[in-house]
Computed example of a mutant assay.
Amino acid sequence: MTDYKNYKVWQKSHSLVLEIYQVSKHFPSEEKFNLISQIDRAALSIPTNIAEGCGRQSQKEFHHFLHISSGSAFEMEYLIEVSRDLKFIDNNTSESLLSDISEIKKMFFSLIQKVKTEIKKA
């Protein structure tokens, strides 16, 4: 399998994790076991599942983990929106993060289609 660090979607999602951790540390402390925990876990899930999928034995398994990662990107999108609506993050920050997430979602779509095609050829 390919080294997960070579995937641009992993690189972009790793950067997103670093951004999210910087943003979520400014959330109210009473959200530590609620929204902070949820948003940090969802962000981590994106690149983590790419890495795990790369460690699997088949493209079919990799494909499955890409879908999990993609689902986490959709989850992140909502968590950013609710964080903005709760006024935990400002509009500029939320727009920047949502733009990054949108790009990641598009990258997943393309990569999932590519892997799906490779599976069909095999």
Rank of each mutant, 00 (worst) to 15 (best):
S15D: 15
A43T: 06
L35P: 01
S29N: 15
S15G: 11
S83R: 00
V9H: 06
K106Y: 12
H67K: 14
H14P: 03
S102I: 07
E61D: 12
E52H: 07
I68E: 11
E77G: 05
S45I: 10
Y4I: 00
Q22G: 14
C54H: 04
F27Q: 04
S13V: 03
Y21Q: 06
G55Y: 01
I101N: 00
Q59N: 15
V17Q: 01
N91M: 05
I46F: 06
V17K: 05
S37Y: 03
Y4V: 07
K116Y: 10
K60Q: 09
I89G: 04
G71R: 10
P28M: 04
M1S: 13
I39P: 02
A73S: 15
D40Q: 12
A73L: 07
T2A: 14
Q38M: 01
S15H: 13
R84V: 04
Y4M: 07
R56N: 00
I20M: 03
H14A: 10
N92T: 15
I68M: 06
S94R: 01
E81T: 15
I20S: 02
F62Q: 07
M76N: 10
F109N: 15
E77R: 15
K105G: 08
H26V: 06
R41Y: 11
H26Q: 12
D100R: 13
I112L: 09
S83C: 00
C54I: 01
F33Y: 13
T2E: 15
S96C: 08
P47G: 10
A73T: 12
K8S: 09
E103T: 09
V23Y: 04
H67T: 11
S37A: 09
I50L: 05
L18C: 08
K8N: 15
G53P: 09
I112G: 09
S37K: 10
L18R: 11
I101Y: 00
S69F: 05
W10N: 11
I80H: 00
Q11I: 02
E30F: 14
Y21N: 07
I20Y: 04
G71E: 04
Q59I: 14
I46P: 06
I46H: 08
K12T: 12
I104M: 03
G71L: 02
L44K: 12
Y7I: 10
M76H: 03
A43W: 00
T48D: 11
H26T: 14
M107C: 05
S94Y: 00
Q57P: 15
T2G: 13
S15W: 10
I80G: 02
N92H: 13
A122P: 05
N6C: 09
R56K: 13
G55Q: 01
S58R: 05
F74P: 13
E103D: 13
I20R: 01
G71W: 03
P47L: 12
I119T: 06
W10M: 02
I112W: 06
S24T: 14
K105F: 08
C54F: 06
R56G: 01
F33W: 09
F65C: 05
T2H: 15
L86H: 02
D90K: 03
K106I: 08
E31I: 02
R84N: 10
K25M: 11
R41E: 11
M76W: 07
Q113S: 15
I89H: 00
Y7Q: 02
A42E: 05
S24E: 10
M1D: 12
P47S: 10
D40L: 10
Q22H: 12
I46M: 07
D85E: 14
L16C: 00
G55N: 04
D90H: 03
T117K: 15
Q113T: 15
